[in-house]
């Protein structure tokens, strides 16, 4: 109720697939990515086609790890940030799985997993693929400036990653992480207007979803081996910790943010990473692997998304944001 979900049958994430672009070799997470392209357009003609290719390959890798082909899958739930989500749509055309396109901005990595888990829980799906993706050039040109335009990015700016992550979700299986609970976020608008400081806009949404998840499911932050937000990055993550600190959380040892860590401390990437591929790539590689290795037994993943468009920003609207959370356990 109230956006809180419990999955008694604990659907499993049977396998994951993560693809990334050439620049993402600079990420400390890249060792766990399944496929790295040497070309930023993934060998395609346009950025958007390359974007679709990223997603397509991530889906195929996730399926191949469970020895399945696209025709075995019941649902595909993916999304991205490009207008009308053509990269996700086009990758869905190529794989040919019954498809539901989703938009939660950069929180799509988790909203897709939650919906796939719901379909599985209801007994309507034996194999669903969930995921999201982003491609630097395609997103920057849409939300900001042409790639070669020499504008100065400040310390609060984030770097859109080129990456895609996909997860194959099945009914409960032994030996793989399973989805126990989840929380759908509310769209939260704290009046932020700077599109070059998305972390500050998204932090309140992440804090809201975290607190609702903890109180709604009667758990506390110390119950988790890891509570990882999506792409708050350095500025947003600091604000988020301040916000939840004010609400009684004092120990931040098990807290981290995928965007903040994505490019390490490389100052070229300013405050860190963002994009729907950011959280998906980290959750479905690093976090998934650490769960498989039983290093993490229980994690809470909170993907964050900014629900703006270039149009809404130019019309002077503030930036509403959303965060969706999923709780994974390894038995």
């Amino acid at each position: 109720m109230k956006g809180l979900l419990t999955f008694p049958s604990t659907p499993s994430i049977a396998a994951t697939g993560v693809t990334a672009g050439p620049l993402e070799k600079k990420s400390p997470f890249h060792v766990n990515f399944d496929k790295m392209f040497d070309d930023e357009r993934c060998g395609m003609k346009t950025n958007e086609q390359g974007h679709a290719k990223l997603m397509e390959d991530a889906i195929m890798i996730a399926l191949s790890k469970v020895d399945k082909v696209p025709s075995d899958a019941d649902f595909l739930l993916t999304g991205d940030l490009v207008n009308q989500m053509t990269p996700s749509n086009f990758s869905a055309t190529t794989v040919g799985i019954p498809y539901i396109g989703l938009f939660s901005a950069c929180a799509t990595s988790i909203s897709s997993v939650l919906l796939a888990a719901l379909l599985t829980e209801a007994g309507l799906s034996k194999l669903a693929v969930a995921g999201s993706s982003s491609q630097h050039n395609a997103i920057e040109r849409q939300f900001r400036y042409p790639i070669e335009y020499g504008s100065q990015k400040g310390d609060t700016s984030q770097w859109t990653v080129t990456a895609a992550g996909a997860a194959a979700i099945t009914p409960y299986q032994k030996g793989v992480p399973s989805i126990e609970r989840g929380t759908f976020g509310k769209s939260v608008d704290m009046g932020m207007t700077d599109p070059l400081n998305m972390g500050a806009a998204m932090a309140p949404a992440a804090a809201d979803t975290l607190m609702r998840h903890l109180s709604g499911h009667n758990t506390s932050a110390s119950d988790y081996d890891m509570i990882m937000t999506g792409d708050l990055s350095k500025v947003g993550f600091t604000i988020y910790k301040e916000l939840i600190g004010n609400q009684g959380i004092k120990d931040f040892q098990n807290f981290s943010d995928a965007g903040e860590e994505f490019y390490g401390n490389n100052p070229d990437f300013m405050a860190g990473a963002s994009g729907s591929g950011c959280s998906a790539a980290v959750y479905f590689s690093e976090i998934y692997k650490k769960m498989m290795d039983k290093e993490y037994k229980r994690v809470l993943l909170i993907a964050t998304g900014a629900l703006l468009s270039p149009l809404s920003y130019q019309q002077g609207d503030t930036i509403p944001c959303i965060a969706h959370a999923v709780e994974l356990t390894m038995k």
């Binding site: 620049l23 930023e40 630097h136 050039n137 790639i147």
Partner: peptide, 8 residues
Amino acid sequence: IFKPKGNL
């Protein structure tokens, strides 16, 4: 002649 490049 040119194509945009998203490198650093």
